[in-house]
Design a protein around this nucleic acid. Structure first.
Lengths: 339, 339
DNA sequence: AAAGGGCGGTGAAACGTTTCGAAAAATGAC
DNA sequence: GTCATTTTTCGAAACGTTTCACCGCCCTTT
């Protein structure tokens, strides 16, 4: 900018005024400056600007895994929204690891991001500390966090799983295997509650042997399914609480020589783009990813626009059960249901 | 830092020296400073540091679509690699749009990223200009760019498609439909060349009506397939040059009342994590995403480590044909091939 | 003709670091 | 005890912006 000012024989203040439109600059000078900018190929240094202005027009976004299609889609929507608003997005993947998450959030805050969207991982205590000491707005995505009172966008997980399990019960299933991630994140907790609630509403027992834990990955779904299928009295249906794990479930069913839905019914959380093309077409709980991404972005953009003091807003969206052909009616009930 | 210096009764220079370890600081002062840092909760301002140092420890990464599983995986690997090296990653999705790409690259350069990884889109001319005027290292990912002489990581696309088409020919297919994206990016060009080469090697004609263009999206694959299937003499196999489009192909086949592989064989570029679990199990060209991501990251990290003057390096990796059950042997040849 | 009011332009301070040369202190050699 | 040498500490400039107070100038108005 100094060079531009010299070339145009004006002061840097005038160049700044013209570039930012913060003051009127006479036509002659404007022209000289614009010419100089072109000649020199001047680009404003956003770092220096950020230092002075205290704003980077960058937000931080942390998700557990970008390869989980749910997060992929949400990240994509969020990225687009901030792109439109002239913000850059720094993406971090925490790999469901608490320390990684802490490091990355600190990294983002050091870089003075203007806002933070986090699909948190692990215990809320540390996150709470970090979030409170930083004075940037934070939006929690997909996962609420006890004690952290800030804008949040989540799904009504309990209801969604309740509907899915109730559907299986209506089909005649009585022993329904359930594969969950660890309970330290709210969706897993709430989804489990939906499972419980549905069984209890139907007067069925909640049997511990039918509930298996995994660490969100395909291999965990595989192992959990193997365990479920080798039970003495094996379940007739399996619900997987997330998307990567259900791939493992399908592989385990295949490897053990069974087939879905003939021998075992399968449903899961999170829809896939290809779920109604390949066989079996999985029955899933579909999250409104577009809406989730947009609402999340809007909450943060609203804070960034200056609305700092409004009380925390919590948005709860509804999932939708996508019924396909991976669950079959069982026994006598079959007729009445499929009719 | 000023506050820390005052609280510890030292100069800011000493604080800086201690934090960065750039000079030895006596034990007493060290202790006073560390205490002050804790008391105040001081965090170094990375923006001010960047301004002074001329380095942001941030890289920019632009890809066409993050929802394309190939890019999702590669982005994930790259993100991890830079995370380990202490760099942040700014992610941009260009949506296969040239103007968006230009804007985003400019945005990234304004923010003084230390390096750039771009899976380019559209014509290379503008990119070339941008890349040359910026003095940051650039690595081209997945797509070479005429006239831009810089580090590049690509697949041997022609060979990979040659192998795939040859496989179909060996199965007895003679009329093989081919769905491609636009030729302004090198992979589409090279893959088409592989298709041509395979047909010619087998003495088969390259028929224009069997080649359809799409814009990389599912809907394009759907439309292209619809056209292919309504040809008077319809193809017995279809190869889709990217991953999202093959979903459209499968939907079109279903909607038209045909089934794969009984009525029509299908193969495509890019593997899916679930491709060997659901039916039909697609025969695909699998890219070594882990290697691609790592090599790309390594090339850039090497430049960032100071190796600026080495001549441009071009890495070409090999794809692998994953033969599954979505392509069936045709006619008399079937016996000899499957034997 | 003098005073008041816009308007266009500018100099310089500030943002929070790093770094360099110099000052100050400590150490060692005689 | 003095001088030379090494070690530790510091002041101040610099990075590239924005912004604020101020200064002329010209146009009105009285």
């Amino acid at each position: 900018m100094l060079h531009v000012a010299e070339a145009a024989r004006v002061s840097v203040a005038t160049v700044s005024a013209l570039i930012n439109g913060t003051a009127t600059v006479s036509p002659e000078l404007s022209q000289r400056i614009e010419q100089a900018i072109r000649d020199i190929g001047y680009k404003r240094n956003a770092i220096a600007r950020s230092l002075k202005m205290g704003t980077t027009r960058t937000i931080g976004l942390t998700v557990p895994h970008i390869t989980n299609p749910f997060f992929t889609d949400v990240v994509s929507v969020i990225q687009q929204a901030f792109d439109r608003a002239g913000y850059a997005v720094m993406l971090c993947c925490t790999d469901e690891d608490l320390n990684t998450q802490d490091d990355q959030i600190r990294l983002l805050l050091d870089r003075m991001v203007d806002g933070l969207i986090v699909a948190r991982v692990g215990d809320g205590a540390i996150l709470k500390g970090i979030v409170e000491s930083a004075n940037v707005p934070v939006v929690l995505l997909d996962r609420v966090c006890e004690g952290v009172d800030t804008d949040t966008v989540v799904l009504d997980n309990q209801r969604a799983v309740f509907d899915a399990i109730t559907y299986l019960i209506d089909l005649g299933h009585r022993r329904i295997g359930y594969i969950t991630g660890t309970f330290d994140i709210s969706p897993m907790h709430d989804r489990m509650a939906g499972y419980r609630e549905a069984l209890q509403a139907a007067g069925l027992p909640v049997e511990n042997e039918l509930v298996r834990f995994g660490n969100f990955h395909e291999v965990d779904g595989y192992n959990a399914t193997m365990q479920l299928l080798s039970l003495h009295d094996r379940p007739s249906a399996i619900f997987s609480a997330n998307n990567p794990m259900v791939i493992g479930t399908m592989k385990a069913i295949r490897d053990i020589g069974l087939s879905c839905p003939q021998d075992i019914s399968v449903a899961c959380f999170d829809d896939f783009p290809w779920s109604d093309v390949f066989q079996p077409q999985l029955t899933t709980v579909s999250q409104p990813v577009q809406a989730i991404g947009e609402q999340t972005a809007n909450l943060l953009l609203d804070r960034l626009a200056g609305n700092r003091d409004a009380p925390p807003r919590k948005l709860t969206l509804k999932g939708r059960l996508m019924i396909r052909n991976s669950c079959r009616p069982l026994g006598a009930v079959a007729q009445s249901v499929s009719a």
